[in-house]
Computed example of a mutant assay.
Amino acid sequence: MRVALILVLAAFGLFSTYVMWQVGYLGIWQAGMSSVGAWQVLVDLVIMSWIALGFIWRDARQTGRTVWPFALITLAAGSFGPLLYLLLKPSGRDSALRAA
């Protein structure tokens, strides 16, 4: 799972960097508001970001992790927040000790 998260984060990060270079941050939002179909996709992504934040918030409370950096990244950059949260999740014995 960790390798898949790294690959997705790297590929999406490179693509996002390219898009930002082409149209800028505001250009992404403008494209998301250019038609009723684009609005539907934008609203869908916002809803999914809020759902992901709910899961992150609950998991962070249960495991003693800090939620704020991931919440801010999610609000500013979408799926980068949840991807980083999953990627940086403590593994093995350390996470079992924190949950206890």
Rank of each mutant, 00 (worst) to 15 (best):
M33H: 10
A100M: 10
A99V: 10
L87H: 00
Q40L: 12
A31Y: 06
I6V: 15
M1R: 08
A96G: 00
R65K: 08
T66E: 10
A100L: 10
R2T: 14
S95R: 15
W50E: 07
G64Q: 01
L75G: 05
L45I: 07
L5N: 03
F15R: 14
F80R: 04
D94W: 09
L7C: 13
G32C: 00
P69N: 05
A100P: 06
L14M: 10
G78N: 14
G27I: 02
A38W: 05
D59H: 12
S95M: 14
A71Y: 08
W29I: 15
D59F: 09
W21R: 09
W50V: 11
F12K: 03
L26C: 05
A38C: 00
L97Q: 12
W57Y: 12
R61Q: 15
R61T: 06
P82K: 02
L5G: 03
G81M: 03
R58C: 05
M1N: 08
R61G: 08
R58F: 08
I51R: 03
V46R: 00
V41N: 06
S16W: 11
A4W: 10
D94K: 13
A77H: 07
L53T: 05
L87E: 02
A60T: 02
T17F: 11
K89S: 11
A10T: 14
L87V: 02
I6A: 13
P82C: 03
S34E: 15
R61K: 15
D94E: 15
I28R: 01
L75C: 07
T63L: 13
K89Y: 15
G78V: 05
D44L: 11
S35T: 14
L42G: 07
L83S: 03
M48G: 06
D94Q: 14
I56D: 00
Y18K: 09
T66Q: 11
S91N: 07
D94I: 15
F55E: 01
A76F: 09
V19M: 08
L5P: 00
T17R: 06
Q62Y: 02
S95W: 14
R93A: 11
I73A: 11
D94Y: 09
V41R: 05
F12N: 11
M48C: 08
I6N: 05
A38K: 06
